[in-house]
Design a protein around this nucleic acid. Structure first.
Lengths: 129, 129
DNA sequence: ATTGACTCTGACGTCCACGTGAAACTCTAC
DNA sequence: GTAGAGTTTCACGTGGACGTCAGAGTCAAT
């Protein structure tokens, strides 16, 4: 199938599909005209790529883990034990990012909580720049 | 004081201080030579900027809320009631970002959890691209 | 032959708080 | 007067998964 159909069937864009090829995640054949020709299994592959992107992995990491993944019905399953190492590193990265954002929210909450304090009421007016 | 001293006293860099001025968060006077001349209260202002940045606000939002903030000892306190609206919007943004990352981590966890499944063992070897 | 839908390859834009030089000027101390 | 530390503006680089043109070729149907 051509790029337009694959885009429709995977709920993504043609630009994204070309980008995945650029990142070496897809390798479609070419027609004499230069048109990309995708195979049925590419539908699954693109969905897997999107799942991994949604899981916070970048394209480089996806390139490493994708050939080692198996699709089991709806589930995406790693087929190699050493794969867990890479995935756990990314999980760690995600956890750190979450912690950072939660810390930021606590800072913001502390500021908001001070809105009714005596110091706040000492000010006459609010004049933006 | 000049830019180097302010950078040292606030634990930031000269580049950052020039950037804050570019974003209209600071307005230092100028010496005849062109050197920036900061005042004592700028130390507090820069610390407030850093606090708000750490709270996940961007410089545009900081520009809006900074003139309405009061420093109460160590605490940064909003002096205007309508300020809470802006801050609560940013809190909402933070919460959404946290939720997104947590969802991503759950996706990743589901993938990792599948590593020992029957489908995973059906595969012979792992051959990266 | 022509329209119109589809596809191609570049290549720059996005977001944003700075990092990192480059080349030139200022100020202080000796 | 000269070395050296401090400062100035200008301007590109960063990260990352694409969005969004521009200009041109492909293909099926009329």
């Amino acid at each position: 199938m051509r790029i337009g159909e694959l885009a429709r069937r995977t709920g993504t864009t043609e630009r994204a599909l070309r980008y995945y090829e650029e990142q070496d995640l897809l390798r479609p054949a070419r027609r004499p005209s230069g048109y990309r020709e995708y195979v049925e299994t590419d539908v699954r592959t693109v969905r897997n790529i999107r799942t991994l992107l949604a899981a916070g992995l970048n394209t480089v990491t996806i390139g490493e883990v994708l050939p080692c993944m198996v699709t089991d019905g709806e589930a995406l399953v790693p087929a190699c034990p050493e794969l867990s190492t890479v995935l756990l590193q990314d999980r760690e990265r995600l956890t750190e990012a979450i912690d950072d954002l939660q810390a930021a929210r606590r800072v913001l909450d502390a500021i908001i909580a001070g809105a009714g304090s005596p110091a706040a009421r000492r000010v006459d007016a609010c004049q933006p720049a």
